[in-house]
Structure formats: structure tokens, C-alpha cells
């Protein structure tokens, strides 16, 4: 039945090029509005001064000024950004390295019950993070990891590992094994085959996994608010700081400061997305080798 409909559709003419282009533009327009309208709201609100402007639904209702940004910087927000950056970077580096090793072992090396290993990794990741908090808190307190970067990124690494291992396992499995075998015939050790042949080919996969890890740990709130609730000088991260914001003036609703801080955090990430999107997405080499 399905093949019949297929033939029927084949007979139909494709719409002319111009209509396709118009449809495409409309589609892109919708995508831009959906993704960017809230961001536009964020930017406009962040520049509003005083309660009257902030409580007005009209986005263009002034007065505008930098008050919210000054208030945010006065609350030590740059230190929070530093903490988030360090924690997210360390998580990404550690997680990608050890995740790549584990994924390669599961995908390629002679390992008994590889499916079981992968399922085990996945299963462990299904526990609700909320209930990891109390026991981990005790452990972290006893070994002095509370209010430290290490305390945060060690836990983030283990939360990000399952997805990283999963993405990279599928990725490594898609690289033709002939390449490794050829390397081994040329006298490469298993370690060399991994380092010189597989890793360079897995670059794009590693990159995607790394970006996902970075964003996930950059966004994390629950553990951060438990393990490093205060003190921007030490380890308090951006989401925790924002949740604790007060207004520019005491008792003012923190809508202005929250939006200003959000803009400050989002701008570097937007630049990052612009610079890296090609590398996140660009022609995954595994596919090129396969084709």
C-alpha cells in the first residue's frame, strides 16, 4: 500500500522554485521569532530603569539605562561567571577524555558483555539527581570538597559521562574497523591505533559531546546550590547567584538584575555558538569515511 502512494506522489509536480524559496523564508522567520523573541524581551527589559518601566508590558517604555548591569556587577557577578567557566571547562575536559576512552573500549575493544556495560552506564544515570544530594553532601563534607570547584566538576563529570559515552560509542562504532586493522598490520599497537587513527576521525563527535557537556554543566543548578550555595569568591556558579539576586534597590523585584545577568551570561555563549556551530555540526567525518 505504501509503495502505491509513493508512486502516486512521484507523479505529482514539485512546486516551482520561487514558491519553495518563499516557504523557506517564512519558515526561517518563524524559527527566528520563536528562538529570539524571548531573548529580545530579555535584552530590552535588562536596560529598563526603575519599577515603572520594569512593570510596563510595553517593551519600548523607558527610561533606559545601565542601572541593572551596574547592580549586577556590584554583586560580584564576574566572579560567578569565572566559577561557572572553570567548572564547566574542567567538566568538559575531564568528561570528554575519560568518556572517549570508555566509549572506545565499549565500541571497539574485545570486551565481554559490551551491551551490559553500556546499559549499566545508562542505568546509573537514571537515578534522580535530587536523591544523590544528601549522601554526596556527606561524602563531600568529609573530604572537604564543599564550596570548591572540584566538588562541583567531579559530580558533573559523572552526570555527563553517560551521554558522552553513549554518543561516542555510536560514533566509534560507525568508524570502519578496516582502518584500525590496516594500522595494526602496519605495526601500530592498539593504543597507537586509537590515538593516531580513531581519535582524529572522531574529532567532530568529540566536539559535539564536549559542547553538550559544557552547556549541561554551565546550566546545572541543583547540585551547585547545595554544594556551593554562597560566596562568589569561592565556587558559587552563575545559576545559583541569579536565583539569589535582589533588585537594584532593596525590596525591588529582581526582574531587572536577573535579566541583566542573563544577558551578560548569554552574550558570550551566543558568540561561542556562532564560532563553534560549524565545528559542532560540520560534515561528521565518520559519515564521510563510510560513504
Amino acid at each position: 500500500m505504501t509503495t502505491q502512494t509513493a508512486h502516486a506522489r512521484t507523479a505529482r509536480q514539485r512546486p516551482p522554485r520561487r514558491i519553495m524559496d518563499a516557504r523557506w523564508s517564512v519558515l526561517l522567520g518563524i524559527v527566528f521569532v520563536w528562538c529570539l523573541a524571548p531573548f529580545f524581551w530579555l535584552v530590552m527589559t535588562s536596560f529598563k530603569r526603575g519599577d515603572r518601566a520594569l512593570n510596563d508590558p510595553d517593551l519600548f517604555q523607558g527610561p533606559f539605562g545601565l542601572d541593572n548591569y551596574i547592580a549586577v556587577l556590584g554583586q560580584g557577578f564576574l566572579l560567578n561567571m569565572r566559577n561557572s567557566l572553570v567548572v564547566a571547562t574542567m567538566t568538559t575536559v575531564v568528561c570528554t577524555i575519560i568518556g572517549a576512552l570508555a566509549a572506545y573500549a565499549i565500541a571497539r575493544l574485545p570486551l565481554k558483555r559490551r551491551v551490559l556495560w553500556l546499559s549499566g552506564v545508562l542505568a546509573a544515570s537514571l537515578f534522580p539527581p535530587v536523591s544523590l544530594v544528601p549522601p554526596l553532601y556527606e561524602v563531600w563534607r568529609s573530604i572537604g570538597l564543599l564550596n570548591t570547584w572540584e566538588g562541583l566538576y567531579v559530580s558533573y563529570v559523572s552526570f555527563s559521562l553517560p551521554l558522552t559515552i553513549f554518543i561516542l560509542t555510536t560514533f566509534f562504532a560507525a568508524i570502519p574497523s578496516e582502518l584500525e586493522e590496516a594500522a595494526k598490520i602496519d605495526g601500530a599497537t592498539p593504543l597507537q591505533a586509537f590515538r593516531k587513527v580513531i581519535l582524529p576521525l572522531a574529532g567532530p563527535g568529540l566536539f559535539s559531546a564536549a559542547i553538550i557537556t559544557f552547556v549541561t554543566s554551565w546550566n546545572e543548578f541543583l547540585l551547585a546550590s547545595t554544594f556551593a550555595p554562597r560566596n562568589a569568591e569561592v565556587a558559587q556558579t552563575v545559576p545559583v547567584a541569579i536565583a539569589a539576586f535582589t533588585g537594584a534597590v532593596e525590596f525591588q523585584r529582581p526582574i531587572g538584575t536577573i535579566t541583566a545577568a542573563s544577558v551578560m551570561v548569554t552574550i558570550p555563549m551566543v558568540i561561542l555558538a556562532l564560532v563553534l556551530q560549524r565545528r559542532i555540526v560540520s560534515g561528521l567525518t565518520a559519515g564521510a569515511v563510510k560513504g
Binding site: 524559527v31 531573548f39 554551565w218 526582574i255 542573563s262 555558538a273
Partner: peptide, 28 residues
């Protein structure tokens, strides 16, 4: 286009939540 689509994802969840809560709220 790609960067635009990725923007909502890179905004921390807590911020996105607060942003939407403010937008849906009666004031403003």
C-alpha cells in the same frame, strides 16, 4: 541560523524559567 536555534539551549535553565515566569506573569 544554527547559532540562533542553539540560543535557547545555552541559556541556563534557571534563567529561562525566570524569564518565562516574568513574561507570563501579570506584571509586567
Amino acid at each position: 541560523v544554527r547559532a540562533t536555534i542553539l540560543i535557547p539551549w545555552i541559556i541556563p535553565t534557571v534563567m529561562a524559567g525566570q524569564m518565562w515566569a516574568f513574561m507570563f506573569n501579570i506584571t509586567p
